[in-house]
Structure formats: C-alpha cells, structure tokens
Design a protein around this nucleic acid. Structure first.
Lengths: 233, 233
DNA sequence: ATGGGACATATTTTCGAAAATAGTTAGAAT
DNA sequence: ATTCTAACTATTTTCGAAAATATGTCCCAT
C-alpha cells in the first residue's frame, strides 16, 4: 500500500469502479502492490477512498485479467508470480501475438504503417534522451506498450486483441520485477527497429519470427534475473 | 426474463455473486435471455432475488467473458450476435484449441486417455437414446462440452484453457441460436469418434486438422442456418 | 410544425450499515 | 502438555437506501 488518499473521485474511466481498477492494475503491474500481498478491504478503502462494493467490482475485473486471485470467503490477493506462470503466460503470448502480427501485416493500411512508424520513433527518441535506465522509465514503458500495440492494431480481431492486452499487462509485471535485479537493460533498440521494418515491408514470416524471439528472449531474461524473487514453479 | 423467483440462495458456487453469474451465463448461452436484451437491475433483482451490488459483480464477470456488454452509465445488455463476431470468435477458437490439442496429445497420460474415452462413450450413449433431437438436449450439451474439455485437459496451460472455456460458451450460444432454425442436426458422431482415435493414437497433426475443421464446419453451419437472426456483420 | 430548455421520471452507480463467514484466543477436560 | 470447544475478533459478503446520471415529457418561442 502506498498512497494515503481518503476520498477518490473519477479520473480515467467513466465509472468509479473502472477507474479504481485502472489504478489498482497499475499498482500491481509496477509491483507497488507485491505478488501474493493480500488485498484487505479496510486497507483498500483507506488508500483508494471507495466503498466495499466498488472495490469488489474493480477486483472482479482484475481477477478476470489474471492479476488478482480470489479465494472465496477469504478475500483477494495479488496474483503470485511463479516460473510456471511465466512459462504459461509466455506460451500464450507467443501463440496469440504471432497470429495477430501476421494478420496485421496482411490487412494493415496506410494509417497502420503510420502508427507503427511514429510509435517507434517516439520510443527511439525516449531511449536517446535516457540511454541508461530507460526500462524503468514510465514514459518509455508507455511508448513501448504503444509500439507493440500499434504492430498488431490492424489485425481486426477484437477477441484476441483483448486477450493480448491482458497478457501484456501480466508480462509487464514480470518485466518490472526483473528490472529491479538486472544490472543493465538489454539493448532492444535494434530489435524494435527490425520488427518495424519487417512489418512495414510486409515480410510476414520474418516479422513473426522476430516477435516470437522477442517475447521468448524477454521471458528468458526475466526468468534469469528474477529467479530469486519468483517462487519455484 | 423467465424465472420469477423472489429470494435466491446459493446453489453452485461458494459466493452468491458467482452463483448468480453461473445462472445468468446459462440463461444467456441458451438464449432465454436474448441477444441485445437490456439487463435492467430492477428486473434482474426480481428474477434472481439478489441486490444491486451482487448482480453488478456477476455482470462484471460476464462482461469479461464477452457474454454481456456494459455501456457505462447506461447499464448492461446481453452481447449482440453478429456475423463479424462469429468469425472473430471462430478464428480465436481454432487458434487456441488447436494449440491446446497438440500439447494435450504430447503430454497426456493414462488418466487423460481414460477421460477422453469415457466422455466420448457417454456422449455416444446419449445420442443412441435420443437420435433425433439430441442437439437441443441439455444432457447431450453437457456431455459434448465434457468431451471437448477432456481432449484438451492435459495441455497444462491454465491461461489458454481459461480463454478456451469462455470462447466455448460464446460459441455455444451461437450453436443454440442456429439449432432453433436448423431442420436436422448434423451428424457429429463420426467426427467425435475420429477425433478421439486420432488423439489417443497420438496422431497430433491429424487430430489438429480434425478439430480445426470440426470448429470451422460448425461455425459455417451456424452462419448458414442462423443468418436470419444474426445482425449483419 | 420544429427545436430547445426546464422539469419530472427512470435507471444506474455508490455508499456504509448489517449479516455471514473465517480465524483466533482462552479455558476446561483428559 | 494436548486436544477440543466455545466465545470473541477480524474480515468478507450482501443488502437496500441515497446520490448521481441518463432519459423522457411538456411547454414555449420561433
């Protein structure tokens, strides 16, 4: 628990519950709320300034996304991190993201190309400005997320896209965890540029291979550097 | 709205909310609650005998599963059925189910084989007893669900399995819709048996082809027979 | 007739109290 | 000392009232 706000009013979403879910999601992904930490209503009410009911609705949303687990009659807790879960997650991510990538490359129009190019450009600029510790930079994280989102944004599969997004959040939590223990961030600049070029160049097979190994390598690195804090699978 | 119960107590799950979600899910999948029907709290409270809050939590769960859509500040409604959604759903289902099938065949142990064989046996028996209209038989539906669940049950991918399950529900709603208008059910007995034999015989490629065409053909049939009641994509 | 604004109604969203359930401590019997 | 039970405390779960928001209606000016 970090903030000590007493009364919260809406900021992002239109309902308070979705707003709280948004803020909770962020605290979980950034590990301000630690894995396995139990989410007691009294404490949550204090820091988020919402009532039981509203919090409960927000937590229900996060359970569906896999960031929170509910033990019926015994409350909620932040989803544990395990090697097993990381492998499961990585497998699902590769399966879905590769499919979305291929379809995006097939269907992408001019606007899609522009989204991909401009989001990569923004990412590169941020890396230039803060070359050392960009991976723990929230601005970089947002840009990184947007670049990957842009790549698959032309796939036209709302169902798989929604699944992809919640998997991305789960994976980002693991990345944040490993960033705490990793000496220096891996150089991803080249990988992202290659990804962009393959996508815009409509080289589907190549782009799919790149995204597959991008996800796999990231996952392997997490497993390597965060091994200490991750419970045994 | 169908039932007129006034006070409801738990039956299935451990919390009332998850129980209500269970019952609501069933009414939506069987189309007792029709696509696009608006889910007003007063009416729901009457037929399910739970309070605003509890219903809201149940609805939140179903939104995550894609059976209900929420329009913020304007309530909930049963998710619409469209050709576009059916295609999207079918694509996602094939992608995920084929992957799970392959991994189940790789990893499945003796217990898995037994689950597959016995669930097929039960399915076949039910079809023998009611050869005509088995597709609208709830007993058959449960057995059918269990057979397909058994096939992928050894995959060891909780994330993809959870996704598969909610996609299965969404697909079943479309099947129920088309069953209302279809003259006679397609003969699936042979398909299911072939699926079982390929799986148990560890012929992964063959089993994956079979499950792919099984899902695709079912979807095509739905599109054909339910075209009238499905909004244009 | 038509468009717009103010009031009234319908509906959703949020709240905090009350009920239900789990967890904990203390005391008695063996 | 140990096990069992009973009472107590902590916590979750459910409820219906109250606040917030959307929708519909009526009246008037143009």
């Amino acid at each position: 628990m970090t903030t000590t706000a007493l009364k919260a009013r809406k900021e992002f979403g239109k309902t308070l519950a979705s707003d709280i879910a948004h803020r909770l999601r962020n605290e979980i992904v950034t590990c301000q709320l630690k894995p396995n930490e139990s989410l007691k209503f009294d404490a949550l009410r204090l820091s988020f300034g919402a009532s039981f009911t509203t919090l409960r609705e927000a937590l229900t949303l996060l359970v569906a996304e896999g960031l929170v687990v509910a033990e019926e009659q015994r409350g909620y807790k932040v989803a544990p991190v395990t090697l097993e879960d990381l492998h499961d997650l990585t497998h699902a991510r590769i399966l879905i993201e590769v499919d979305l990538m291929r379809r995006s490359i097939e269907k992408g129009d001019d606007d899609w190309e522009i989204r991909v190019i401009s989001s990569l450009h923004r990412l590169a600029r941020i890396e230039e400005r803060a070359p050392e510790d960009y991976a723990s930079n929230t601005e970089w994280k947002a840009a990184h997320r947007q670049f990957h989102e842009a790549l698959v944004s032309a796939s036209g599969s709302p169902t798989l896209l929604a699944m992809r997004n919640s998997l991305f959040d789960r994976a980002e939590r693991y990345r944040n965890l490993s960033a705490m223990f990793r000496p220096h961030p891996r150089d991803k600049v080249g990988e992202h540029r290659a990804l962009m070029q393959a996508a815009i160049g409509r080289k589907a097979d190549q782009a799919c291979d790149l995204i597959r190994s991008h996800i796999q390598t990231t996952s392997d690195n997490v497993a390597k550097y965060a091994a200490g804090v991750i419970s045994a699978g």
